[in-house]
Design a protein around this nucleic acid. Structure first.
Length: 271
DNA sequence: AAAAGCCCCTGGATGC
DNA sequence: TGCATCCAGGGGCTTT
């Protein structure tokens, strides 16, 4: 998926345009990860107040209730004045007075879930355990270090888990750890305060840079404007197994952690 | 409580 | 060309 930068870029591409719109109709195709939780027809007539992001979730606020959208691993949204005919893997449409939103998701790991409020059980189940937003002020070195100290798992896995800090996916986890010079297998609890500070800065950096580039390291990413996707940020280690480290030329290594690939430079990144 | 595995699902790349 | 296998931006749930 789309990691935090791609979700945020997607949000920015349609949030202002859909705000204030009235929902005309909603359509749901094949089942996504979870049931919508409301009859699509019951959404008609409600007003869209805005679109926020929490971790990798998009929250579409309505005058009554909200929609939680997740792009899973392969989802993408488009927002257009009018939508083209439905194609393979289109699963959700929201037609409004200002344009229509469509979710396409080949793998269907994504989700659209209606909740009465952010405090409702459905919303709390999905959002309740999330960690701090890395691009907000709550993400400070002290608290990050404290949180890492309580975890004995490999730091890469802790980043991916999302209960300490949200939005860091498989690509940016490897990239941030490279920038911080930390081996992905290092136990989180053994990371010193200065190194935790460096990692926090690296996470902020790599995510903020990706957002500002409007994109992404994803091959097939496109924003809701339909802008083409491409590698805008050159990865330092991700997907570069065997290739020379861009800093020291040592071959980049690939290992498996929790059934996901991790890439690192054995010379630049210390345990 | 925390950690480790297991799935959900489709499609593209690779190998025989 | 055809078929099997592996891998892919995530993360909730179950089991240790």
């Amino acid at each position: 998926m789309p990691e935090l930068p791609e979700v945020e870029v997607t949000r920015r591409s349609f949030a202002d345009r859909i705000a204030g719109a009235t929902i005309e109709s909603a359509w749901l195709g094949k089942a996504l990860r979870w049931p919508l939780g409301i009859e699509p027809a019951a959404l008609a007539g409600r007003r869209v107040q805005g679109v926020r992001r929490r971790g990798k979730y998009l929250l579409v606020d309505l005058d009554c209730g909200l929609l939680l959208l997740h792009l899973g691993m392969s989802g993408s949204l488009i927002f257009a004045p009018s939508l083209p005919p439905r194609a393979l893997h289109d699963h959700f449409d929201l037609a409004t007075s200002r344009g229509a939103l469509r979710l396409n998701d080949p793998r269907r790991f994504g989700a659209v879930v209606y909740a009465d409020s952010e405090d409702s059980p459905q919303a709390v189940k999905l959002l309740g355990g999330l960690g701090v937003e890395p691009l907000e002020s709550g993400f400070d070195a002290t608290r990050f270090h404290q949180a890492l100290k309580r975890r004995n798992a490999a730091v890469k896995q802790v980043l991916l888990a999302g209960d300490v800090v949200v939005g860091v996916g498989n690509i940016y986890a490897s990239e941030a750890l490279f920038l911080a010079g930390i081996r992905p297998t290092t136990r989180a609890s053994r990371i010193s305060r200065p190194r935790a500070a460096k990692l926090a800065a690296a996470i902020r950096d790599v995510l903020a840079r990706a957002v500002s580039k409007g994109g992404s390291t994803l091959r097939d990413f496109s924003s809701a404007q339909g802008e083409a996707g491409y590698f805008q940020l050159e990865a330092m280690v991700y997907d570069r197994a065997g290739e020379p480290c861009r800093v020291c030329a040592t071959p980049v290594r690939c290992i498996r952690q929790g059934q996901r690939s991790t890439y690192y430079c054995p010379h630049c990144q210390k345990p």
